[in-house]
């Protein structure tokens, strides 16, 4: 589903980051770990098309995304890539349900009420849908942001430190939920983390240095 070749990023301040080649098939999980400053977030942004690589290529669902123009990249990202951030952020003015629907609308235009309800029930947030994001707890927000990423029905799920702010119990729950959903939707799941708790869960790992 996704693979990279000779990926490198030229930092504006001069440094060049080289990344090892990686690949992840549909329904699989790849854990990318490394110490702080190793370029974990940069790699995630490169894979999501938020940043342009200095050299090398990234192929997501058969498309070399480094060649896409900004507008096409935005549209492609909406359709194929779901991103879960360390800090869950939402459109503060919209309710959780509206936030989730927005993701679906921006991604592929479809907007099914039942789908939203089903997903919310799976993630245990169905009672929170009418609430404003600011009223949710950290764990609830994290689950909601997973729901949002899944609403896009992505082929590639990127998660940036999804468990860093969660306690052990929630951490396990969220990690399992992610893996489960990726499996169900046949999406490739890439988790960027330095959370050692996750290393025990997922075997497929790449360590950045």
């Amino acid at each position: 589903m996704i693979y990279t070749k000779n990926l490198a990023y030229a930092h504006p301040n001069g440094g060049v980051l080289q990344f090892p080649d990686m690949a992840c098939a549909a329904g699989e999980v790849l854990l990318i770990t490394g110490r702080s400053g190793a370029g974990k977030t940069t790699l995630l942004h490169l894979l999501a098309g938020l940043l342009r690589p200095g050299s090398g290529e990234i192929n997501v669902a058969g498309t070399f995304i480094q060649t896409l123009r900004p507008a096409a990249m935005d549209a492609f990202r909406g359709r194929h890539i779901g991103i879960i951030y360390q800090q869950s952020h939402f459109i503060a003015a919209l309710s959780i349900a509206e936030n989730l629907q927005l993701a679906a609308t921006l991604g592929h235009g479809a907007q099914k009420r039942e789908e939203l309800q089903e997903l919310a029930e799976k993630l245990g947030i169905s009672t929170l849908l009418h609430k404003k994001p600011a009223r949710l707890s950290q764990g609830e927000q994290q689950r909601a942001s997973i729901a949002r990423a899944l609403m896009q029905r992505p082929q590639l799920l990127l998660a940036d430190e999804p468990t860093a702010s969660l306690d052990d119990e929630n951490c396990m729950a969220v990690a399992q939920l992610l893996a489960e959903q990726a499996q169900q939707q046949q999406a490739a799941l890439l988790i960027v983390t330095h959370d050692s708790r996750l290393k025990e869960l997922f075997a497929n790992q790449i360590i950045l240095s």
Partner: peptide, 17 residues
């Protein structure tokens, strides 16, 4: 204040325009 929201919108496939 909402720059993160704006970035979020773009990461969800909302174009710059």
């Amino acid at each position: 204040e909402r720059r993160y929201e704006l970035a979020l919108l773009r990461s969800m496939g909302c174009g710059r325009s």
